[in-house]
């Protein structure tokens, strides 16, 4: 069995003007596709070939670095596409909002913390909202690492992942990463994030 590049739930231009169609298309059909392909090549004929991606990531310190990089790249982009929507934006509701208020003081405080994690990640990487034993944490990781990996400083289940590799925003925002981070909140799919939280 091999991993498959998932189709997007929306068109490449659906997140305009927040994320442009050209960026989405290259990001999905080139970058994400390459991670998927490289992951499949790296696990071919090994005992990881029948494992789920979560199982592979959980013990990533025991696997070759190609699996860490490409397995992370495969999983992280799956999550990223999944938690965005052309109908996104606004505020979270219900239990998720309660948990955010409880763990960060307010939604604004959470957003500030998350934006800061995303803006200050030096080089390539991701910013995360992570759930661990019911509690929420903000973190960031370098390159394609993620909170499921046993090497992560903050471990848990990621429920928001924001890609801050330059390829995620350079065609539209160039050096202005903070503008891209602001735009992300206009397309975040809180219904999907809530499902991952529950």
């Amino acid at each position: 069995m091999s991993f498959e590049l998932p189709k997007l739930k929306y068109a490449y231009d659906a997140l305009e003007p927040n994320i442009d169609a050209r960026t989405m298309e290259i990001h999905h059909t080139k970058h994400h596709a390459a991670y998927t392909n490289n992951l499949n090549n790296a696990i071919k004929d090994t005992d990881l070939a029948n494992k789920s991606i979560e199982e592979i990531l959980k013990n990533i310190s025991k696997h070759p670095v190609a699996i860490r990089n490409n397995g992370g790249g495969f999983y992280n982009h799956n999550l990223f596409w999944d938690i965005m929507s052309p109908k996104g934006g606004g505020l979270p509701k219900g239990d998720l909002l309660d948990a955010i208020n409880r763990d960060f003081g307010s939604f604004e405080k959470f957003k500030e913390l998350f934006n800061n994690a995303a803006a200050t990640r030096f080089g390539s990487g991701w910013a995360w909202l992570v759930k661990n034993e019911g509690k929420l944490f903000v973190s960031s990781t370098p390159n394609q690492d993620n909170p499921l990996m046993d090497i992560a400083e903050v471990k848990g289940t990621p429920i928001i992942g924001l890609d801050v590799w330059e390829h995620a925003y350079y065609l539209k925002y160039q050096n202005r990463r903070p503008e891209y981070i602001d735009a992300f909140w206009n397309v975040i799919d809180w219904d999907q994030v809530t499902k991952l939280f529950m």
Partner: peptide, 10 residues
């Protein structure tokens, strides 16, 4: 990526 993304993308 900023060194080449405008000209060469991926």
């Amino acid at each position: 990526e900023h060194a080449y993304y405008i000209d060469y993308q991926n």
